[in-house]
Amino acid sequence: MYTPKIFAGLMSLLLLISACSEEVSSTVSSAGEMDADGSDLVLLQERLNDLQERAQRLRDTKEIKRLQRAYGYYLDEAMWDDLTELFTDNATVEYARDGLYRGKERIREYLYRLGDNRSGLATGQLNEHFQLMPVITLSDDGMSAQGRWRALILTGQYQESALWGEGPYENEYVKQDGVWKISKLRWYQTILVPYNGAWGLNEDVNQGIYVSPDFPPDEPQTDNFGSWPETFLPPFHFDNPVGRYMPSESTTEGEG
């Protein structure tokens, strides 16, 4: 009901008045009610602000998780337009070793090409990409975030191929007009291997290359990530939340 401005006005009035309150309290509180003085109310307001901010940060974390999971469900069904709308206008995507594509329309075209320029799955196509293991890190101002995830993948074409796949994401998100969007998507393909023999007996089926030969990226691959059986540790956006074990020194706890 109170706009912030009116509220601020009231609060400063109360603060001003609170200087008087000690003197007049005996006179005025004759009504018998336990009036708070202005400084109490300011304290309450500060505590409320703190709660609101913390609750908002948890809500943001949950919304980012929903966003990435919604991404997964759209990807499963090759819903490329819905997928594209999850990104900011100048977002970037970089899948496996295909290089980096910048901007929503380039992303849309990239995704369509992943799906043979068709919206939706073809008959007999399986495209499951489970989105697992979120580690979300919100910026101090709560307007951007980073997230590590892992995709577990079952894809293939009936009577042609079946593949196991897996790989982590290191993504970035921003909040625009109160809505979280993906601003950067980086997916590392640990494996994409045939069902028979899986990762024990097969090399990666496409060496992490999807559509870039026919649709060159805006920037080449941004790191030296290779393909199975080569292995690579995608950098973490977060530090060890407790602290790395130092074998030669006594460990410390709870300095975070």
Partner: peptide, 28 residues
């Protein structure tokens, strides 16, 4: 005297602030 005057205003203003805080807390 001024203080007494302001404090009587305060009673109304304080009610408003308390009510506003109560709503924000209920929302939280």
């Amino acid at each position: 005297l001024i203080c007494l005057l302001l404090t009587s205003l305060n009673a109304g203003a304080q009610d408003g602030v308390l009510l506003s805080l109560a709503k924000d807390i209920a929302q939280a």
